[in-house]
């Protein structure tokens, strides 16, 4: 019996380690290129010697820290807007019975099927019309929209699991709708809010296509993903080591946030997807 147990544990660990290796390989590759000396392309063998030169070049020759700060600020503000937007919208969709509820919810889901990346000309026009070009505010709003529409399915699923009885009991006790939302629903939905927060952070921090279209002026005003892309200066002239070094430092804040909030994040996602 004991041997069988041990064998089973062995198999489990073997599978897990295998997957861990598969997951980590590309990151090892990124690190090899970032630390490697004299790397020509992305596909060329393991470098012979290693250096920290690319990291110091990144900090001295480019606006790297500024880009990171820009992205960080955009991401934090996006989180704020998205959390408010999602909580009031989901409250309405989940707690209120109204005409057109189902259709509206479906429409919001379906509209995301349209690949926005292909409609950049139209997006640019709307940005120009609103005077949002080259301004962080524009990116914040549009990232928040992308995040909220994307998360509304999970968020509604979660809200639906909070029993209506609690609301009704509170109502009988004379609590106003606002009080119920603020004091009962939202605290119960805290894990869901954490997902919305972290997922919108990830979206805003990594967003590239939109930002590159609407942020046209000033290297120091670029968000991180766009700034990094400026190192790809052509088919032949790209400095991959610098690019990968940037990717490594750039992802650090996200990993830190992710790991420190992991507890809430995972707890939240899970329950959100359970339908009653």
């Amino acid at each position: 019996m004991k041997r069988k147990e041990r064998l089973r544990a062995g198999v489990i660990h073997f599978l897990l380690i295998l997957l861990a290796i598969v997951t980590l390989t590309p990151f090892v590759h990124i690190a090899l290129i970032a630390f490697g000396e004299n790397v020509v392309g992305t596909g060329v063998a393991v470098p012979r010697s290693f250096t920290l030169r690319h990291f110091s070049l990144l900090l001295s020759e480019t606006h790297f820290l500024r880009w990171m700060l820009n992205s960080f600020l955009i991401a934090v503000a996006t989180v704020g807007v998205a959390v408010v937007l999602v909580s009031i919208s989901v409250y309405a969709l989940s707690r209120l019975r109204f005409y057109g509820r189902e259709h509206l919810f479906r429409a919001i889901l379906l509209i995301q099927v349209f690949p926005l990346t292909l409609a950049m000309v139209s997006i640019f026009r709307i940005f120009a019309a609103m005077g949002l070009l080259n301004r962080m505010a524009g990116l914040i709003v549009v990232n928040a929209v992308l995040a909220s529409t994307g998360l509304i399915l999970v968020a509604k699923g979660y809200f639906d699991t909070i029993p209506m009885d609690i609301d009704e009991a509170a109502k009988i006790d004379g609590a106003s709708r606002l009080t119920i939302l603020w004091k009962i629903n939202l605290p119960l939905a805290k894990p869901m809010m954490m997902i919305v927060a972290i997922q919108s952070f990830v979206i805003a921090y990594n967003e590239y296509v939109l930002s590159s279209t609407v942020m046209t002026q000033g290297l120091d005003r670029m968000p991180l993903a766009v700034g990094l892309q400026s190192m790809i200066v052509g088919q032949y002239g790209t400095n991959w080591s610098l690019y990968c070094a940037g990717a490594i430092i750039g992802s650090a804040p996200m990993l830190i946030i992710f790991y420190s909030l992991q507890k809430y994040f995972i707890g939240g996602l899970t329950e959100g997807s359970v339908k009653s």
Partner: peptide
């Protein structure tokens, strides 16, 4: 119904700007 649509107005407006218009 009125309240719900009102609460959803910001989202609907933003979706209209950044999805429906494109």
């Amino acid at each position: 119904t009125l309240l719900a649509w009102l609460l959803l107005t910001p989202l609907i407006l933003l979706v209209a700007f950044f999805y429906l218009y494109p």
